[in-house]
Nucleic acid binder design. Structure first.
Length: 722
DNA sequence: AGCACGCCGACT
DNA sequence: GTCGGCGTGCTC
């Protein structure tokens, strides 16, 4: 018998696989997890190919273990990972590692393995014959094992049940088996009546045959979730699985509760990074054996094994959280579309402010556009948006008189109000009145934010903290003044202005503690807070039925940004914040303070016409050949000094000279210094995907083979921020 | 990425 | 005299 070999993808930053010898008679499948020696370490990897020709290398080592804790990755997950590795020019082993629960990246069998399986006695009569007639509990357990039973059911019989089970298993009287599928009774609670647009949308999804992306474009409150629910209901009636992606981990509990209420008896699992290791593995396995009918999760869930996949839903598809910002920089929304193609199923992308990429696809007819133009909740009206011009106005702690008046009226009439501030902390910078000194981070090219409560200056980019100086470090003057308004300063000002109001500040600082956000949202719903101060984390997904007024301080930040996507993001953000107001019958009011009331941006925003705004933006992007009319990638380089980083980028630019890809000149990054590293980048662009792809492959290969000295580099394909 | 081996500064 | 700094070299 000839030797057998296996190619293994490992989580190392090398764009190649490694071959190992398979010990005799071992059964290993493609997609299976194997434990292998690697240098002086032991690693977990994924078997990609099996063969009987010896690899052409000096030494071939043996596979150490092929634990059965993880069923082999199904073909479509492998293909999706291969696609991502290629598209994002990232090593396949690292992509596969990101696709797996952490426990399956460890080079040892998952300790909870025993727990997850089910057990059955193939011959109960034979088993009973070995048990004493007086051992009633043991006999009861044996009877139970006529069918596969999970560990929890077995434990329920007796405290010693697992020990008996192991004894029986050792002599072959009991076998470990696949967990039984839970009979899913799809008995949804009454579905609300849909309006005509919603019905049409649900129909479009349920009638879609094979791969079909659908863009569900609906304003806040137009009932997108109801469309998802009814489309999923249809999928479940066919016995297929639904995958639902949400942008943020904060939104999963809320959505999960709504799904559970709607589909009682349905097995719903969530997948996100907040789960404990064991739970994550359990949910992943339940998705993979088809037991979970609905899988709800953040971006990492797009890689979950789903044998019966029938529909993918991507909620708030424009949201930046779908992109991983570090390491393997992928877009889960794009991966979801590709996966739907692989599986030949529909994919439903929902948003009130679709990404321009998706909008263009819909305009080009590649995606089917489904519009929801009406608020689905009866009697609900869109909020009234007003601009408050502030260019020549005296402000009180950042507030115009109009905004303060509106807050006073709202509180007096018993309504809730939200003040939206785009920065946390007390003030974004501390400054010397005398010499102009400003608090800045010694590791980053960024200002240190004043956090008055903790008496700290803190860098929001690297986490560096220092004590607030009593005097100016440059000139010794004692007149240090906070400049600008963060959430804490706004909170302090409102406390003074509205002493009787119940204030609640909701930002990353006040919700750092586990469960804090949930508790705060509960208080808002219970009416225990009537004046909310929040950053954009409040804008997403949470319903505040009592909210009558939203005040937006300082909206202009995104209007004159060097980043061509800033306006698109600002529109989405402002529309999303205003969508929080007036959801339960009464008309909400939104006040936006701006220095530039004449800017065309605000015209489109006030008209609430995202379609018109998006079309205009697309025209501009077309004229300037910006994405989505061209394909972009960024090569980032960082070093201890700026010069080597720039030199590296110049050399790389020379490497690509003369090709179909345009390489811009190296420039320092917007945040040129971060955590002590000088950062720079070059933009690579091409009119088509294919030439960019080829250049990236060549770059990644070359840089991996001959890594630059002293320079860390990363490729960012379809970059979202600069 | 790890984890080694490999040559130069301040410490028991 | 050595403990340890991080440069560079390799991993089937």
């Amino acid at each position: 018998m000839s030797e057998r070999y296996v190619s293994v993808a490992l989580d190392v930053p090398l764009p190649r696989v490694f071959d190992y010898r398979l010990p005799d008679a071992w059964q290993v499948a493609v997609g299976q997890r194997v434990i292998v020696p690697f240098g002086r370490q032991v690693l977990s990897g994924i078997a990609l190919a099996l063969g009987d020709t010896a690899p052409d290398v000096a030494t071939v080592r043996d596979v150490l273990d092929a634990p059965g804790d993880m069923p082999p990755l199904p073909g479509d997950v492998l293909d999706l990972c291969r696609f991502c590795a290629d598209y994002y020019a990232y090593p396949l082993g690292a992509v596969l590692a990101a696709a797996l629960p952490g426990a399956f990246r460890q080079p040892r069998p998952w300790p909870g393995h025993e727990e997850a399986g089910a057990y059955v006695a193939p011959d109960v009569a034979r088993l009973l014959a070995t048990i004493s007639a007086r051992a009633a509990k043991q006999r009861a357990l044996a009877e139970l094992l006529t069918q596969p039973r999970r560990v929890d059911a077995i434990r329920a019989v007796a405290g010693d049940a697992m020990r008996w089970l192991r004894d029986w298993q050792a002599v072959g009287l009991v076998e470990r088996t696949r967990a039984p599928a839970v009979a899913t009774e799809v008995a949804p609670s009454a579905s609300p009546e849909l309006n005509a647009e919603q019905r049409a949308a649900v129909m479009a999804v349920t009638e879609a045959r094979g791969f079909q992306p659908l863009l569900l474009f609906g304003i806040t409150g137009s009932g997108k979730t109801e469309v998802y629910l009814q489309a999923i209901e249809a999928v479940r009636r066919r016995g297929e699985q639904a995958l639902v992606l949400v942008p943020e981990i904060n939104l999963t509990p809320q959505l999960e509760a709504r799904f559970r209420a709607r589909f009682p008896g349905e097995h719903i699992v969530s997948l996100h990074s907040g789960l404990a290791d064991g739970e994550r593995v359990r949910h992943w396995l339940e998705a993979g054996d088809g037991r979970a009918g609905i899988v709800l999760g953040t971006r990492l869930a797009v890689f979950a094994p789903l044998p019966g996949l029938g529909l993918i839903v991507v909620d708030e598809e424009h949201d930046a959280s779908y992109r991983q910002a570090e390491g393997f920089r992928y877009s889960a929304r794009d991966a979801a579309v590709y996966r739907a193609r692989l599986r030949d199923v529909p994919v439903l992308l929902g948003s009130a402010t679709p990404a321009l990429e998706s909008w263009k696809n819909a305009r080009d007819g590649r995606y089917r556009l489904l519009r929801l133009t009406q608020r689905a909740v009866s009697g609900a009206r869109p909020p009234r948006m007003e601009l408050v011009p502030t260019q020549r106005m005296r402000l009180t702690d950042g507030f115009s008189d109009a905004a303060l008046g509106a807050l006073r009226d709202t509180l007096a009439s018993g309504g809730q109000a939200l003040v939206f501030v785009n920065r946390r902390g007390y003030s974004p910078v501390l400054s010397c009145q005398d010499c102009g000194w400003m608090s800045s981070c010694r590791h980053c090219s960024a200002r240190l934010v004043l956090h008055l409560g903790e008496r700290k200056l803190r860098c929001h980019h690297c986490g560096h903290e220092e004590r607030v100086p009593h005097a100016c470090p440059d000139c010794g003057n004692h007149d240090l003044k906070p400049v600008g308004h963060g959430t804490q300063r706004v909170e302090a000002a409102l406390e003074a202005l509205f002493p009787d109001a119940n204030l609640l500040r909701i930002d990353r600082d006040s919700t750092r503690r586990k469960g804090a956000l949930g508790e705060m949202l509960r208080r808002v719903h219970a009416g225990e807070a009537d004046l909310l101060i929040g950053t954009q984390m409040l804008a997403k997904g949470h319903d505040f039925p009592g909210l009558a007024l939203v005040v937006v301080l300082n909206a202009d930040g995104g209007l004159f940004s060097a980043d061509f996507r800033a306006e698109e993001r600002l529109f989405a953000q402002l529309l999303q914040v205003s969508g929080r107001a007036g959801r339960a019958g009464r008309e909400g009011r939104v006040l936006i303070q701006t220095h530039y009331p004449e800017h065309p941006f605000y015209g489109a925003l006030l008209a609430g016409d995202y379609a018109a705004f998006a079309d205009t933006q697309l025209q501009e992007r077309r004229a300037l050949a910006l994405p989505p009319f061209s394909a972009w990638a960024i090569l980032r380089g960082e070093a201890k000094q700026l010069q080597p980083a720039l030199a590296f980028l110049r050399e790389t630019k020379a490497l690509l000279a003369g090709g179909a890809v345009h390489v811009a000149d190296p420039v320092p990054a917007a945040l040129a210094r971060k955590a002590g590293w000088e950062r720079a980048h070059v933009v690579l662009s091409a009119t088509g995907r294919a030439p960019l792809q080829a250049a990236l492959r060549y770059l990644a290969q070359t840089l991996a083979e001959t890594p630059p000295r002293g320079v860390r580099w990363a490729l960012d394909v379809d970059p979202q921020e600069f």
